[in-house]
Simulated assay, not measured.
Amino acid sequence: MLSFDWKQLLNPEFYIFPGSLWLIMFIIFAETGLFIGFFLPGDSLLFVAGIFSEKLIASSAFDFGNSHLNLIELIVLIFIAGVIGNFFGYWFGLKSGHMLFKKEDTWYFKKKHLKQAHNFFEKRGGSALIFARFLPIVRTFAPIVAGIVDMDKKKFMLYNVIGSAAWVALMVASGHYLDTFIKEKYGIQLTDHLELIVLILVLITTAPVIIKMITHGRQKAVGGEQE
């Protein structure tokens, strides 16, 4: 009997198995378009997908028989999922997102996450959609906020496409080529150290959010003391 631990959902390697490319695409769609997907491991998942690019394409899509073409195919498919995910988030924000600011906190929804994305969006403008792709939690709520503020659709799609292309290409290609380089140069298999790699990626990608929260907290504390 197979045992299942919900913690596995936070482990990118969990999604790497035959046919899992479509699951990865859904995960990216959910993390960039559904507010309940903020906890999913987007950055590390893409990086690990790059490492396993050959297996993913061979088991789930058309295998060109060329590692570079297979990598491009993988990037394009995940890129499409990211674009559609963001557009769905934008549509949701446009239609009913304003109601989220009145919604009570639940285990899967925290109003502070939406406010954090809203503040980030106001500070960065449309380019926030590009920067947000590289920030956990923020990338989930940024397109929803774009819909709430009724951002122009053409402008939104431009930033949506650029952001998705930059994020997916950078993370997937980094995983693929770094794995190839280290394997050829040092004879080390990155697949043997996935837990450490994922931990490092999580620390790197969440650091800006944590620093921002700490800084904001100190500013509020100072402001409160002055009052």
Rank of each mutant, 00 (worst) to 15 (best):
T140G: 13
L114T: 10
L135Y: 11
R124F: 15
F87L: 09
L201M: 10
P18D: 06
L135C: 12
L77A: 07
H176T: 00
A173F: 14
V209S: 05
V145H: 13
L71Q: 09
S164P: 09
L69A: 13
S174T: 03
A207N: 00
D5L: 07
W22A: 09
E122Q: 13
A132I: 08
D105R: 09
I211R: 03
I36P: 13
A128H: 01
L10Q: 03
I144D: 08
E31K: 10
F109N: 10
G89K: 03
F4P: 02
M157G: 14
G223R: 12
P136H: 01
G37M: 00
T140Q: 09
V138P: 14
N66P: 08
G50C: 03
I188G: 02
A221V: 14
R218C: 05
M171A: 04
I144V: 15
L40Y: 00
F26E: 00
T106C: 09
V222A: 12
S67N: 13
W107G: 04
K110L: 15
K95Y: 02
G89T: 09
E73F: 06
P143M: 07
V209H: 12
F52I: 12
E104W: 05
T206A: 10
I16T: 13
M171L: 12
A30D: 01
I200M: 04
Y90M: 04
H176K: 06
H216G: 12
M25K: 03
I36Q: 02
G33V: 00
A221K: 14
D63L: 03
M151W: 12
K153V: 15
K103P: 04
P136F: 00
L9W: 05
L34Q: 11
K220T: 14
R124W: 15
W22N: 05
M1S: 08
K212Q: 07
F4I: 15
L170P: 10
P18W: 09
W91I: 07
H216T: 06
S20L: 07
G163C: 12
S174V: 01
Y15D: 05
I75A: 01
L56F: 07
G42T: 01
F121W: 10
H176N: 02
I197Q: 04
T106P: 11
N119L: 08
K155P: 13
F87G: 00
T180W: 01
F14D: 03
T180V: 01
K102P: 00
G175M: 07
L74M: 07
A30E: 02
P18N: 14
S67Y: 02
G19K: 01
V138G: 14
P136T: 02
L194M: 12
I130N: 11
H68T: 08
I78Q: 06
D5I: 08
L69K: 13
M99A: 15
L178W: 01
V138A: 04
P143D: 12
W22M: 06
M99G: 00
L94S: 07
I75W: 02
Q8N: 12
W6N: 06
S164M: 03
S3Y: 13
P136V: 06
L21N: 02
F26N: 05
K212E: 14
T180K: 11
G65V: 04
S44F: 00
K103D: 06
L69R: 04
Q189A: 06
W91G: 00
K183C: 00
K153L: 14
N70E: 04
A142Y: 08
F26A: 03
V145Y: 10
L201T: 02
I204N: 06
G82C: 08
R139W: 08
Y108V: 13
F64E: 04
K55G: 02
L129I: 15
M1F: 05
G224M: 08
